[in-house]
Amino acid sequence: MSMLIKFLVAAVGAGTPLLFGTVGEILTEKTGHLNLGVEGMMSIGACIGFMAGYYTDNFFIAILAGAAAGALGALIYAVLTVTFMANQNVTGLTLTIFGIGFANFIGIFVLSKSPEGTLKLPEKITAAMRGGNIPALSKLPVVGELLFSYSPFVYIGIAIAVACAWYLNHTKAGLSLKAVGENPGAADAAGIKVTSVKYRNIIFGGAICGIGGVYCAMIINGGVWISNNVGGLGWIAVALVIFANWQPAYAIWGSFIFGALRVLKYYIPQSVLPFPIAFYDMLPFLITALVLVISSMRKSGRINLPAALGLNYFREER
């Protein structure tokens, strides 16, 4: 029982960076732009957020810095694909290569200047990130551990996902966003400012991805900077968007399921299921591939894929 609780808690932790990446990418894709730069935006966010935390020792400044950095990465993407109508796939990939390179470069650069030879977050911010410090609630048996023991990131992530679900489904701005993603020409004719809707949501999505990056840099390695700390999670997030059927609310449980897959190897003893470790590492990617195939086979049913995804909008050609 306590093993199961530990497993679930670990799954939520491992799923949280995916949640940020997925929700950010859902907002982006709803504009009709497939941004393959999630990994890059998360890396930039990771780097800037971590450095801000390292120097200021303030948790909120770190998160804001990470979000701003992710938004800046998304801004590059938005300028190139929305205004300059560049190929979305190539732009996104470039953003990923640039972002990872930038993060690693800055990381190693700061590392080479640090006297200790490692970059470890200071005490105060580490304490702020650590979970289980909600008065009274965290001390409850079982429920306390399952619901109230997490790092603030988890609650921020869920709050953002819920807010985005509400934004998409219950606000006028969300409706405009969906209209732009389905048919920008019609949205334009209806008086929606297509370019501004695209910019706003792509940048906002990038900011959310950036916070996910901060999680990767601060939590996964116990507050010590290492290169490549996002490590492919951004790519899983891109795939999770499909798994979540472009619904931020589904992204919550989707990312926790994938989080569970990522930590499974630590909780299933070799004596029970003698799978090699590499198999568990492969599992999230394997299942994503299966989900892709199955969701494309399932012709019927409601698939929320934005109709104009991947197509740039040129006003004079509508």
């Binding site: 590059i76 300028v79 190139l80 205004t83 300059f84 109508m85 560049a86 190929n87 190539v90 732009t91 470039t94 953003l95 290569i97 640039f98 972002g99 990872i100 390179g101 930038f102 690693n104 470069f105 190693i108 650069f109 080479s112 290169s227």
Partner: peptide, 23 residues
């Protein structure tokens, strides 16, 4: 002492500009 990731950063910047110039 600059890490080799510098190459990735420069590649990214070059491509950003080329993508923009195609417009």
């Amino acid at each position: 002492g600059l890490s080799t990731d510098c190459a990735d950063v420069l590649q990214g910047i070059i491509l950003f500009f080329i993508l923009g110039c195609e417009f």
